[in-house]
Design a protein around this nucleic acid. Sequence first.
DNA 1: CAATAGATCATCT
DNA 2: GATGATCTATTGC
Length: 180
Amino acid sequence: MEVAPDCLGKVLVHGRAAGRIVEVEAYLGLDDLAAHASRGITPRTRVIFGEPGHAYVYFIYGRYDCLNFTAEPEGQAGCVLIRALEPLSGLALMHRRRPKAKRIEELARGPGCLTMAMGITRRLNGSDLVEGALTVRAMREPASFEMGVSARIGITKCADWPLRFFVKGNRFVSRYSARS
DNA sequence: CAATAGATCATCT
DNA sequence: GATGATCTATTGC
């Protein structure tokens, strides 16, 4: 979970679309009942137990994909859920993929939204974030921002663990997380 | 602007 | 068969 805050401010690139990560959540392993990995290795969670630096994409609620980065070494579970992006380039493309979003803030505001905007599907599950089609880069200049911490969103177990990190004051952070 | 209900399917029990 | 790391639309202030 130590790497979760590091993901803030980094840039996610998929094809021509790119966005800055402004909101993430950390999910641990067996001790974290909210994590998919808490039940151990299953066909779906085996990526989390695999090598770090890979994408874990899962389908949720019959509609949406969510994007994670695996974080812990092989054999251990741990991942970072990307909750919100600030769109940087490929805006027209994102708009086409999300006709419902009329404002830029709505393009990638939320786990399901950002995967749609970026065109991420389960096809990318387990793909390498360095060599694959989906990549993560750090900004040239270390972005200076205030980091906020709060409880995670949208879960029913361990809902009070302060494992959510976001860029304070950034309006691209989802409103469901505006609790303070 | 804030809060609530409904849609919908892959995965696990 | 039940459940969920969600989003959108609708209703109420």
